[in-house]
């Protein structure tokens, strides 16, 4: 009872379900859990093929760590802005809610800008999705992540302008919480990608440069 009363006080209401959690929220968490599999498979595929390109460019020739570090910082700060937006929505402060949602949209767009710039630079340097195995797995993985970010930006943009016109309701706060969960998930996926693909991948991304190297990989 004390727990229920505390939740009543903190969240406004307790969902009338068996779990006490709204079904939409539970569904969102199930979706995010399944999305772990989606990105996990892409990351594993990247790791399997990262050093098996016959021709360059190879990861350590082309990945721009300083640029990606900045974009990682931008995405982390967008997560902070997102949680602040939700905080103010729960406090029914519409102006601050909208301000922080727009901050997330701006930071997310900046991140996308970095990604477009990076892709363009790679293409100019000869790395496309068809160049080699590194290019294929890299563009598919980071491209799908970018697509997730784009979806999040559009979702939040719609919320900022269409959803939060009038007073905040418990329904609209929950909508924002769903969008927030999605956005934070996009952030944690990037945390893994940045470490595994960029930082670790750069240190270990030489590709197959010689016949002897190729022979050693195929066990010849």
């Amino acid at each position: 009872m004390a727990q229920a009363a505390l939740e009543q006080e903190q969240h406004g209401h307790v969902a009338d379900t068996n779990t006490g959690i709204s079904n939409r929220k539970l569904l969102m968490w199930v979706f995010l859990a399944s999305d772990c599999l989606f990105f996990g498979s892409f990351i594993a595929t990247y790791l399997v093929y990262r050093n098996e390109s016959i021709v360059g460019p190879f990861p350590n020739e082309i990945l721009d760590i300083p640029l990606t570090s900045v974009s990682t910082f931008v995405l982390l700060m967008s997560s902070l802005a997102m949680v602040l937006a939700l905080h103010y929505a729960q406090k029914s402060q519409l102006g601050l809610t909208r301000f922080w949602i727009l901050a997330v949209v701006v930071l997310g767009s900046v991140f996308l800008g970095f990604q477009v710039y990076e892709f363009k630079t790679f293409v100019n340097e000869g790395l496309t999705i068809r160049s080699n195995l590194f290019g294929t797995t890299f563009f598919v993985l980071t491209g799908f992540h970018g697509l997730h970010v784009l979806m999040g930006v559009l979702w939040l943009l719609g919320m900022a302008f269409a959803h939060f016109k009038g007073a905040l309701t418990s329904r609209s706060v929950e909508d924002l919480e769903m969008a927030g969960l999605y956005w934070h998930f996009v952030d944690i996926v990037w945390i893994i990608i940045f470490t595994v693909i960029y930082l670790i991948g750069f240190s270990d991304g030489e590709g197959i440069e010689t016949i002897e190297h190729a022979a050693s990989i195929i066990g010849g």
């Binding site: 959690i21 539970l26 399944s34 772990c36 498979s41 902070l80 969960l181």
Partner: peptide, 26 residues
């Protein structure tokens, strides 16, 4: 940020299960 620390444990279980399956497949 995703409030799992403050939310009901069932959500932690759901997400951890998905994450562990992903790690297993990985």
């Amino acid at each position: 940020f995703m409030h799992l620390r403050f939310d009901k444990n069932i959500l932690t279980l759901v997400f951890t299960a998905g994450f562990l399956i992903a790690i297993f497949v990985f």
